[in-house]
Structures are given as structure tokens and as C-alpha cells.
Nucleic acid binder design. Structure first.
Lengths: 136, 136
DNA sequence: CCTTGAACCTCTAGTCACTAGAGAGATTAA
DNA sequence: TTAATCTCTCTAGTGACTAGAGGTTCAAGG
């Protein structure tokens, strides 16, 4: 059995975060010590690692909860798991595309002023959405 | 003078959000009607547009506040404005790079299962950070 | 067995940038 | 005047934590 601190070490998830996951029903502990401290089994540790990895991959706790529910039911249902992962992948690609458009606009805006003594045009450029080449 | 609803129309910012900006000291109204409703001048509208555009570019409200403070002081100080914009640009580039690494890992993970009747390996792949090619 | 210090407990409140809703009052057009 | 729409303040909720107060339990050394 692991203490919450050991679980934290083993997963890289901070102690208050583990308690938070319990509070929202994502990760129950596997019992308590005589003095009311949380105790976990290896299964709990693995579940937390799954959660941590999902978070590192950018999944929401809701998506992770759905995946955990799937794997709790005997044979892992391939189709739904893929649907969740692929919808997240689509979301990431969308975010990348939007960030790249922002990058271009901000480059354009910071280049609007050439630093050579003329009044700075950066704030003007920031103010004026009409100057932007693409939507954002 | 504009009502809050007109300002909302002119800027694309929702009415409660405008009140929220006032609450945090980002945008004061330019007076009140006899019946205590907020009234704004064209300057207020422009300030809100600046905020809205900054938000659309992904700037935090704190960064926007700093830029507004700069432009409130007579001549726009070029150096500081650039510093803010460029630090944000660096942040965006960093986020793009991280999202691209995530994209690759998720692609690899979703390809771990080929759907052809064998047990699904997706959940396994998601569980095991050790399989990942790069950090995330 | 006793002490010490680290780890643990619960609870409340704060973060960011809003969003939702209740219940009351103001404005505007017909 | 009346009806419809807008606006007011206030409270509370979102996601995913983080911080802190004030108290209790555990494990190791003596």
C-alpha cells in the first residue's frame, strides 16, 4: 500500500491534486490507515498514471473520465476510445492552426514599427483589427 | 453616448463581460443615465475594441492592461510595448511546438490499434507514457 | 517507550476570464 | 399608457487546480 505522498512521487502529480481527483470522483483511495490517512494499491497508482498521462497529452478530465469508464467495462471498446482520441486530435490540430494564424498577425504587428525614431506604431496596429490579414 | 448594449454590438463583447471589465478596472464607463445605466463615449468604445482585439490575439487581460497603461501615458513607449508583444509571440511559438509534439504522440497512439478484430491497444498506449517518443 | 519532524488531515478561499440566473428597475416605440 | 426590451446589482458556477490555516498521524532514532 502507498501513501498519498508515495503516489505523488510515483506519478508526478501533486498531493493536493490527487485529493482533488478524489473529490471529483476520478480516483478513489483503496482504504484508510488507522489514523485516517489515504492508502493506495498498485492499481490506484496505475490509474493515476493514466490520468497524468492523459493530462500531459492535453485531454480534459472529462475525456479521461470517459476513457476510464470504457476500460473499467471488461473488453475495451475500440470504437469509442478511438472517437475520443481522434476528436482530441482534431481539436489539437485546430488549435495549432489558430495559433499559427495568431503568430503571423503578431509578427506583422510587431514589424509595424521599425524602432528608428519615428513614433511607435505597435499600439496602433494592435488597436486596429481591420489591418489584420486573416480572421482570429 | 452609447448604452452598454450598443457598445456590445460595436465590439462583439458580451454585456456581462463589459461589466466584468469595469469590475476589474480595465474599462470605466463615461457616466450614468438618470436611471443609473452606463453610458459610454467613442473613446470608451475604442478602448473596448482594443481590449477585444488583444483578447482575440490571445493576450492576457494583464498584458492588455499593461499596454493600455503605456498608451495612456503620452507618447507610446516603443520598447516596452514591443517587449510585451514579443514575449507573447515567443509564448505562442512555444505553445505551437508543444502542441505539435502532442499531435505526433496522439497520432502514434491512435495508430497503435488497427481495428481488425484484435483487442484494442489504444487504452494501453494511452496508459503508458514510456512508449512516448518525446517529452510532453 | 518517547520524542521529533515530516507527512498527512479537513476546510476555506483564491486563480483566470468569464457565464448564468434571479429579481427588480429603466428606457423606448407604438 | 402600455408592452417589450434593456439594464441594474448580486450571487454563484465553470475547469483544474493552488495556497494556506490549524490540527493530527506516522516512522525513525535514541
Amino acid at each position: 500500500m502507498f501513501s498519498i505522498g508515495q503516489l505523488s512521487q510515483a506519478s508526478g502529480v501533486k498531493v493536493p491534486t490527487i485529493r482533488y481527483y478524489e473529490e471529483i470522483g476520478l480516483l478513489a483511495c483503496d482504504g484508510r490507515s488507522a489514523g485516517n490517512q489515504r492508502r493506495y494499491t498498485a492499481a490506484g497508482r496505475d490509474r493515476l498514471r493514466f490520468i497524468a498521462h492523459g493530462r500531459a497529452l492535453g485531454l480534459s478530465l472529462d475525456a479521461i473520465r470517459a476513457l476510464l469508464d470504457l476500460s473499467d467495462r471488461e473488453r475495451a471498446p475500440c470504437r469509442q476510445a478511438h472517437a475520443i482520441a481522434e476528436s482530441h486530435l482534431a481539436d489539437i490540430r485546430d488549435r495549432i492552426a489558430r495559433l499559427q494564424r495568431l503568430e503571423q498577425e503578431l509578427e506583422r504587428i510587431t514589424n509595424a514599427c521599425d524602432h528608428d525614431g519615428a513614433p511607435c506604431r505597435l499600439l496602433e496596429a494592435l488597436a486596429d483589427h481591420g489591418q489584420c490579414a486573416s480572421a482570429h
